[in-house]
Write a protein that binds this DNA or RNA. Sequence first.
DNA 1: TATATATGTCGACAAATGTAGATGTAACGG
DNA 2: CCGTTACATCTACATTTGTCGACATATATA
Lengths: 123, 123
Amino acid sequence: MKNVSIGDSEFEIMKVVWGADEPIGSAAIGKAVEGKGWKRTTIATFLARLVEKGALAAEQRGKALYYTPLISEREYKKQRVSGIVKSLFDGSAKEMVAALFEDENFTDEDIEELKAVFDNKEK
Amino acid sequence: MKNVSIGDSEFEIMKVVWGADEPIGSAAIGKAVEGKGWKRTTIATFLARLVEKGALAAEQRGKALYYTPLISEREYKKQRVSGIVKSLFDGSAKEMVAALFEDENFTDEDIEELKAVFDNKEK
DNA sequence: TATATATGTCGACAAATGTAGATGTAACGG
DNA sequence: CCGTTACATCTACATTTGTCGACATATATA
């Protein structure tokens, strides 16, 4: 419920944990973020902080810790997007969409799909 | 062009400067953000940092400094929104809109308007 | 068993940001 | 001429986030 604030690097870790359907161990996480060029301890710090913040739960399994998300990806994204809508678009999601629309690339299919989504919701 | 990073409080200042159509002086800015509860020096720091960052230009006019935005509101919002789309929605603006749609409140009028915008763009 | 390997914990340091007190100064009111 | 204002600048301190290195320990292995 509370607003967990997650940094960009931490977020990369979250994505990995969200991507796993079961509690995921540090080893697997490390493997998943190879390529980011982070030292082992760096990753460990992110994990520890995420646990502190209440974004992840950690359980000991053998020698290693296994992590489970305490906030869902959807929840988190929603939080972030709402924040942007509120601070940049005065709370108007419509404004945001309109702005997005001017700058981002949408294919005609995208638009069709979106219109469909909208039609669906429109009661 | 460069990606100016602006904090939340700094952003509040930017909004004021953007809102003025002419260079705006520190006094006016201070007046505009009364209510935020910031001390005078706090505001001055924000202004100074924004100038350092290249977000604002300052010119001396009499005793006070007058500020002009060096990045447009549109430009900045675009930057922020693109960042979110990239990091949270894998670069898919469509996904973002869809997500927005599930969480935010859109009135039927909003939807109509958006569809109109979409129709317009669809070539 | 002595050792290399895998992990977790601590403490650190830097940059960005929020926030403000101390200082210095020039203009203004009397 | 002098105190009061109105500002600007500088320094400072806390928190958050990105990144580690140093350590301690348990485990696996030669």
